[in-house]
Design a protein around this nucleic acid. Structure first.
Length: 720
DNA sequence: ACTCTTGGAGTTTTT
DNA sequence: CTCCAAGAGT
């Protein structure tokens, strides 16, 4: 692509940001100010000018999905295929570095990455063993403390007591220390470790740091306001010499301080890189002036912010609409009704989003959408790789790759039940503690006769040995297939269609991984999975988008609903007392508002039913922060015209209705169909009420149950 | 010794 | 709904 194309249509500030490819830069990019455009064009420009080569750039984004999009946009702009290059999250970048440097810090290349559940289980186990229950602290709370310590580059010895003789502190230090030891024994790293250990490695081994500095003389860090101290330090280490680092952020969109993010990194950057060019992007290209005014008005209630004024030249639009309902059910129905009506006017389903503060709120909304036959997708609710059956299968694969992985062993040894109980498992793990792997531990225990269930342990050992052999020889896909077959999980879950489907999906994921990265092995596949968020699902949107406000960051929609505008829920009661945390809730609201291009629809329920309990809530204080002239309060329904047309005019040409599955009449049993992932199949059963009919489909190698409406199935019998 | 069933309790946000 | 702990059953 020619230079004038890369630079075309940029405003003054954007142009300066794009063309300043050398030296440090702080890009303060307001919501909707064309940030992604600037970042991608900047890299494309540098490539085109010959300032740097693609393999000299390390770009860090917040999610894998954002990374994927950035790769694609740069590739399109620059005629360079950027897909092989380093656009990663902090975590995946560190995992990749540590894999390559494994010998230098005495870890195997194929280490395991512990997720939150592995971590919590480990802490529970430690608490049990040490007998010490940390005074009124749940394992999750302890884990949180440990994670925050890691984010701040504090090891067990670096924790400071709050006062002399702080029991909490001593116990926490002890648990943290054992926790780290156990991770090492298991040849595992957790999320915090990935960053912490990389920083430590760079600190301790100058020549390795030097190598990576030389490798990446150009850095870019996106969502900089959400970086923690460890990440900041890593950036500094890498950028110290070249000083070619561009950080991009917006202090008003900092919403992850509970995860260790430190907003002061923006100030630190100005100190550490005093020669940095500072550019503000304040023109908003996304939202109407009305939406922007609402957002500005709300965020102006925060004290801790760098002042910044967004403005928009877009056409005027409507103000916000606020709806109060009796309960959550009514709220959900109003949202569904509003969506229906908007869809009949001018807005397509994928251009609509519904945001909420907590995941459980999605359930009621989903039910109403389903009833009204409105297609939707939920982003990030139950993470695929955290589902029980998926973790079960992953446990076997993890052990095949890393036979020291104690958490995987716990799971693999007990699901499906094979007669190895807690006691035997503990014995085997003890055996493995002295630097032995778990397979060897099994072997030795059998040889010594120190164990009761000799036969079953022997069976498990052989199974693991077999999987280990397979992963060396076979493709990732075959290794997963072998795991499914040999683990006994397929039989174990034979009755549960959903779980079987998930196992097959993991197999399919392995297949596509193998296609994308033919040179990578099972270990890399497992690492990749551990770092994958649900956000990254790439299937194109066909329905309304449902997600938490946290997941909404970086996205935009024509129409945005924000549900549950109630005290106690939003701001959440756990964050409402402290000023700093309340301000973060407000920023979360700000993020939500600024996702909207045209319309903003808010709602609150005075009664909410959640898990056997009814709570009564006042409307959120944030509502009072919206200028009155820009917030119209309604009762009953969102739109002024609840039922304009009783019936739609009937279309008499059949071709018009065949194209979209909107009007799909439903399949017959015995009908031949095709699915984009599973291929051809036959409907074996069709059940349930018409609106939410389920179909059972037999494919060549498996059988799946779908909700008919969203199944992506196409008939093979209606073709001309 | 191990597994399965039952009842009770807890649920912010997530790489 | 889903995770735990405790007790009964094999």
């Amino acid at each position: 692509m020619r230079q004038e194309d890369i630079l075309e249509g940029l405003n003054k500030q954007q142009l300066e940001a794009v063309t300043s490819t050398e030296g440090p830069m702080l890009l303060l990019a307001g919501a909707g100010s064309g940030k992604t455009r600037v970042i991608t064009h900047r890299i494309a420009y540098g490539l085109q000018q010959g300032t740097f080569r693609a393999d000299q750039v390390l770009a860090v984004t917040f999610t894998n999905k954002a990374a994927g999009e950035m790769r694609e946009r740069i590739s399109n702009l620059s005629r360079v295929d950027f897909n092989r290059h380093w656009v990663k999250t902090f975590h995946s970048a560190c995992a990749a570095i540590l894999r390559r440097e494994a010998p230098a810090f005495n870890y195997p290349r194929d280490f395991t990455i512990y997720d939150t559940r592995d971590q919590t289980a480990l802490i529970k186990d430690i608490l049990k063993k040490t007998g010490g229950s940390l005074a009124n602290s749940t394992p999750a709370a302890i884990l949180n403390k440990i994670s925050r310590a890691q984010d701040s580059l504090l090891g067990p010895g670096d924790l400071k007591p709050r006062f002399d003789g702080d029991m909490q502190h001593e116990q926490l230090t002890a648990v943290y220390r054992i926790y780290q030891e156990r991770l090492q024994e298991a040849k595992a790293l957790d999320f915090g470790d990935l960053i912490f250990q990389t920083v430590r490695l760079f600190e301790e081994q100058e020549e390795i740091l030097e190598k990576w500095r030389t490798r990446f003389p150009y850095l870019l860090i996106d969502e900089f306001q959400d970086t923690n101290k460890a990440q900041y330090t890593l950036m500094k280490q890498l950028a110290k010499k070249s000083r070619n680092v561009c950080v991009v952020g917006d202090d008003d969109q900092s919403i992850y301080s509970w995860r260790g993010a430190d907003i002061h990194n923006i100030r630190s950057f100005q100190k550490d890189f005093q020669e940095a060019k500072i550019i503000r992007l304040e023109q908003n290209y996304r939202s109407t002036p009305q939406i922007l005014e609402i957002a500005s008005s709300v965020i102006s209630n925060n004290n801790e912010r760098m002042s910044k004024t967004l403005w928009s030249q877009l056409e005027k639009g409507p103000g916000a609409v606020y709806l109060e309902t009796e309960d959550d059910r009514e709220e959900a129905e109003a949202i569904a009704g509003g969506i229906r009506e908007l869809a009949e006017q001018d807005t397509a389903f994928p251009d609509i989003a519904v945001f909420y503060r907590t995941n459980f709120q999605s359930r009621t909304i989903e039910e109403c959408l389903m009833q009204r036959e409105i297609p939707y997708r939920v982003i990030g609710s139950v993470r695929f790789y955290e589902r029980k059956e998926v973790k079960d299968l992953l446990a076997y694969l993890r052990l095949a790759v890393n036979p020291y992985d104690a958490q995987a062993f716990e799971r693999a040894a007990s699901v499906p039940p094979r007669g190895i109980g807690a006691r035997t498992r503990a014995l085997l793990r003890e055996k493995a503690a002295a630097g032995r792997d778990l397979i060897t531990a099994c072997e030795q225990s059998i040889a010594e006769g120190s164990i009761k269930g000799k036969r079953t342990v022997s069976g498990l050992k052989n199974l693991l040995l077999c999987l280990r052999a397979v992963q060396d020889a076979a493709s990732v896909k075959d290794a997963v297939a072998r795991g499914m077959e040999k683990s006994g999980l397929m039989q174990h879950y034979a009755e549960e269609e959903q779980r079987l489907g998930d196992l097959h999906e993991l197999h399919a994921a392995a297949d596509s991984f193998a296609a994308d990265s033919p040179d990578e092995g099972l270990g890399e596949f497992l690492n990749r999975i551990a770092l994958l968020g649900e956000m990254d699902k790439t299937d194109s949107a066909t329905g309304v988008n449902l997600m938490t406000l946290h997941n909404a960051k970086g996205l935009e929609f024509d129409t945005v609903f924000i549900a549950g505008m109630e005290e106690g829920l939003f701001p959440h009661y756990l964050s409402a007392d402290e000023q700093r945390r309340l301000e973060e809730e407000r920023r979360l609201f700000y993020v939500g508002i600024t996702r909207a291009k045209q319309r903003l629809l808010l709602s609150a329920a005075s009664r909410r039913f959640s898990f056997g309990r009814t709570s009564y809530n006042e409307p959120s204080r944030f509502l009072n922060e919206i200028p009155e002239s820009l917030c119209e309060k309604r009762g009953g329904a969102f739109l002024r015209t609840p039922r304009l047309r009783a019936a739609k005019p009937h279309k008499n040409t059949p071709e018009a209705t065949v194209t979209e599955d909107q009007s799909s009449p439903g399949f017959r049993e015995g009908e031949r169909v095709s699915h984009p992932r599973y291929g051809e199949g036959v409907i074996t059963r069709r059940t349930g009420p018409e609106v939410v009919a389920r179909v059972q489909v037999a494919f060549r190698e498996r059988s799946c149950l779908f909700l008919e409406r969203y199944s992506n199935l196409t008939s093979l019998e209606k073709e001309e």
